[in-house]
Amino acid sequence: MGSLQLKSVRKSFGPVDVLKGIDLDVKDGEFVIFVGPSGCGKSTLLRIIAGLEDATSGSITIDDQEVATVPPAKRGIAMVFQSYALYPHLNVKDNMGLGLKQAGTPKDEIDRRVAKASAMLSLEKYLTRRPAELSGGQRQRVAIGRAIVREPKLFLFDEPLSNLDAALRVNTRLEIARLHRELKATMIYVTHDQVEAMTLADKIVVLDAGVIQQVGSPMELYNRPANLFVAGFIGSPGMNFIDAGRLGVSDAKTIGVRPEHVALSRDAGTWQGKVVHVEHLGADTIVYLESEAIGTLTVRLFGEHHHAVGDVVFATPSADQTHRFDAVGQAIR
């Protein structure tokens, strides 16, 4: 079991409100990811769930038990840190076993769990090594193993991949996805990388300025962003926002269209524009247009296309894939 409920959780440091009332439900076995720009409060929220930081007010329940004043070790959680945070003076085995030893778990039980976790993460060969003798990827696996042996109700990940290089990051991401399938455990994961969020999550929580902007599956967020912030944050390159007034639309303030939902033509289309820059990424071509009617427009074309700077082209948005936002930035459905 491992469900989590947050009710109007607030956190302030002196006069600064970091979290302004967070309500959230996490069901057993869900993989939930908090994303948002740096400073949005996502790490603070995770640390409040872990008990490393105290909420100023609000309630936190794990499996229907109020834990707001329970120390971290008694909450039935395990955490994987960005900097691995392995105990430098303990070998791999003792690093994984320390939490259980503190809790008074019998030695053969500790051994059994460590053996199981290290098999799962192919760490058997390194059990007697110290952290300093391991590579970055191995250290991160030990940190994950340390979480697994606790058999927690909740796994908490605090940007676990950001210290790894690009190739290792993809591998470890796949590894975490596999672990989630095998363990069927509840996982809460913080990242600022939307690719990690889109690829791993069952449910994404987008935070900005201490407020939840939207909660939903990756595709919900992509297809039906609740407001301008989510629309701009999810997807790369970011959504084009066009002042509705320039298009003669009166029932909305802003019209949004994703770069991949715009077609280009040399002959005819909705908006005429001039190519100002082109980026060739191989699989995609990104074209930047300057249009008198609507301003700057980013267009993402699949495959290789040849447009020269200065060419005049026509852009046409795909009709059912535009988004409308009202004066305060909320999506109009």
Binding site: R47, L52, I77, M79, F81, S83, A85
Partner: peptide, 23 residues
Amino acid sequence: VSDDLKNAGRIDGLSEYAIFFRL
């Protein structure tokens, strides 16, 4: 000294005294 390390100790159930003396 890394905050993460001290927090890892807290999650593993070390008291504040143990975190000071042992980590």
